[in-house]
Simulated assay, not measured.
Amino acid sequence: MGAWGVKTFENDSALDWISELEDDKDLSIVVYKFSEFNHEYQDSPAETLDSDLSSEVLAAVEIVAVLRGAPGGDIPPAIERWLKKKSYDRNLVSVFNEMMKSDAVDDETKLQWKAFSKEEKWKYIVSALADDAVKLIEIILSQSELKDLWEESDKYEDWLSEVNYLKSRCGG
C-alpha cells in the first residue's frame, strides 16, 4: 500500500489527481471529476463506489473549499498559492457556459447567467460547486468503498472527522 492517511492528500489517489491539476492549472477538471462521480453513482446507485474515485472527489472538494476561502491546511502549498490568486478561471467559466445551453437548465437561469457580470458568474460557479461538493461527500459517507475501508481501520473516527470538516468548509 502506498500513501494512506486520514487527511485528503495523504493518499495516492488524491495525490495523483492533484498532480494533474498542478500540471494543467485548469479548474475545469474539478467539474469533470464531479461529473464522473455522479455518472458512476447514477449508473449504479445501489453499488459501493470505488475508493480511488472517492479519494479523487475529496481532493476536488478540497479545491472548492479553497475557492470558497476555507482551506484546510492539507492542500499542497503550490496549489494553495495558485488558487488564492484565482478570482476567475476562463476554462471553468467556459464549461459552465456550455452547461447553460443544456435543455436541463431552465430559461430563467439561462437569462440570469447571461446577465451576470464576470464576478457574478465566478461567485455562482463556486457556490454551485460547493453545493455539489456537499452532496458528493454525503454519497461518499453513505456508500463508498473508501468509507468501508476506513470503517475497518482504527482511524475511522479521525477520517470521518476530517471529511465532515471538509464538508463544513463547503457550506454543509
Rank of each mutant, 00 (worst) to 15 (best):
L49P: 02
I137F: 06
L58G: 01
N11M: 01
L15R: 00
D74Y: 01
N11D: 02
E151A: 05
N38S: 15
D16A: 05
S28W: 03
A3F: 10
V6T: 14
I75Y: 00
K155R: 11
L83K: 01
L67M: 10
L92N: 08
L146K: 01
Y124G: 03
H39I: 11
A70D: 14
H39P: 00
P45C: 08
L146F: 03
E108T: 02
D43H: 13
A3K: 05
E80C: 05
I29C: 06
S161D: 13
K85P: 03
S44V: 01
K84E: 15
R90L: 15
K114C: 04
G171V: 07
M99V: 09
P77K: 00
L136D: 06
C170P: 06
L53G: 06
V30M: 08
S13Q: 03
L83P: 04
N97Y: 02
A115L: 10
A65I: 02
D26E: 15
E145C: 00
L83D: 09
F37A: 04
G73D: 12
S28G: 13
D23W: 15
S94K: 14
N91L: 13
D148Q: 04
I75T: 11
D23Q: 09
D131R: 11
G72N: 13
Y165L: 14
D50W: 04
A3P: 00
E22T: 11
F34N: 08
S144A: 03
D23S: 12
I139C: 03
A65M: 09
L129N: 10
W159Q: 13
A104Y: 03
E22Y: 06
S144P: 10
L53M: 12
S142G: 09
R81M: 08
S144Q: 06
Y156N: 09
M99L: 15
D131W: 04
E36Y: 11
L53T: 04
A65D: 09
R81Q: 13
E120S: 09
L83T: 05
Y124M: 07
S102H: 07
A78C: 07
L129M: 15
E47G: 04
Q42D: 12
V126C: 09
S102L: 07
D24A: 14
E138G: 11
D131Y: 14
Y41P: 04
K86V: 15
E151D: 04
P71G: 13
S55H: 00
L21E: 07
V6P: 04
L58P: 00
S102D: 15
G69A: 02
L129D: 07
E162I: 04
L15H: 00
P77T: 11
Y41D: 11
I125P: 06
K135E: 10
D16E: 07
M1P: 07
C170L: 12
E145Q: 10
L27C: 12
Y156D: 06
V93D: 09
P45M: 10
